[in-house]
Design a protein around this nucleic acid. Structure first.
Length: 326
DNA sequence: AATATTTGACCGTC
DNA sequence: GACGGTCAAATATT
């Protein structure tokens, strides 16, 4: 029943940190792969640097992978772990956190799953049932992304995950509305990662992207198979870090990218010599670095920082307990 | 037909 | 009660 769930707090924390770092490294990897050198992307020294960067990031990612493997993480990826900031103190549950199981969701609409809330729900599988009330305790971090005006992108998509927009809101004092996205596989794989995109009012080319929660879907662990036949829209989205708005452009550039790749393949040395990165999230199923299809034009740039900052309130420890033992 | 986005309503929090 | 986040019906896109 409770076999592997009996991890110590330290172990869980370690796991969380690793996952967090892993995610960050993956993003960095994706980003590096996406925007090498804007114009003359040939044998410039910049290319060499980019290559080195790629290799380094690759190593980092691999390192995380191995660490996670050692912790046997792959066997229970469905458990949403909270990357715990070092500053968070594991306060014993003070008995607060009024879990009102019945009304957590707030919305009486038939919705996803009900919370186990004391009921003797038997999820023999470790199907971690997510309590929406805890959503705000999920790890959260932001980054600023600049788009190239030429591309006329609406929203930056800097990651390899596929998102589905579920809302848009006018924010007080902001010139532009804020968009809300969630993982496409929310319903099918119970993946609760979300992100918000807010266009900066001062600089319209800058988007502030806030992520919340890490992906637990298969994309986070095992990216899709190679683009043998890039036809499905789904593949497009995940293949390219591009807009959700101009699928045609998307397809176009995808096509050209693929062409270029094929061309360059023989040369062995090319603009973007990705040394066939072992799949990054997975342990060997795919050769999936096609997620970095490249065009010579950087679609966006990270303007600021990548700040793995986590917001957790005092109820945090409770969540941990529940997330593991439920 | 299936899947994604839009958009007003709903809900919790402050 | 205002605000931010989410839901879900309607609509658009593929």
């Amino acid at each position: 029943m409770e076999g592997k769930d009996l991890l110590s707090w330290e172990q869980k924390t370690l796991l969380s940190e690793l996952i967090n770092g892993f995610e960050a490294a993956k993003k960095l990897q994706a980003r590096i792969g996406e925007a090498p050198s804007p114009s003359s992307s040939f044998l410039s020294p910049a290319t060499a640097v980019a290559e080195t960067n790629e290799i380094l990031v690759k190593q980092i990612v691999s390192s995380y992978e191995r660490s996670l493997l050692l912790l046997n993480w792959s066997s229970s990826p469905t458990v949403q772990l909270i990357p715990t900031p070092a500053t968070v103190v594991p306060v014993a549950n003070s008995g607060s956190v009024p879990e009102s199981p019945a009304s957590i969701n707030g919305s009486p609409r038939s919705e996803e799953f009900a919370d186990g809330g004391g009921s003797s729900e038997s999820h023999h599988r470790q199907d971690y049932i997510f309590n929406p009330k805890k959503r705000k305790m999920l790890p959260k971090w932001s980054e600023k992304v600049r788009i190239s005006p030429e591309r006329g992108l609406e929203g930056p998509q800097d990651d390899v995950f596929s998102w589905r927009k579920y809302g848009q809101k006018d924010i007080l004092g902001a010139k532009f509305p804020r968009s809300y996205y969630r993982c496409t596989h929310r319903s099918t794989q119970n993946c609760w990662a979300t992100k918000q995109v807010q266009r900066s009012d001062s600089d319209a080319t800058v988007f502030e992207v806030t992520y919340r929660g890490t992906h637990t879907c298969s994309q986070a662990i095992a990216p899709p198979p190679p683009p043998a036949s890039p036809e499905k829209k789904q593949e497009d989205t995940r293949v390219r870090p591009a807009i959700t708005q101009k699928p045609k452009d998307l397809l176009e550039s995808l096509k050209s990218n693929l062409t270029v790749r094929t061309d360059e393949l023989d040369d062995g040395k090319d603009v973007f010599s990705f040394p066939h990165t072992p799949p990054f999230y997975n342990y060997g199923t795919i050769n999936g670095d096609f997620g970095h299809v490249e065009s010579s034009t950087p679609i966006f740039d990270v303007v600021d920082w990548f700040n793995p900052m986590v917001e957790i309130d005092t109820t945090f420890p409770t969540f941990l307990n529940e997330s593991i033992y439920y």
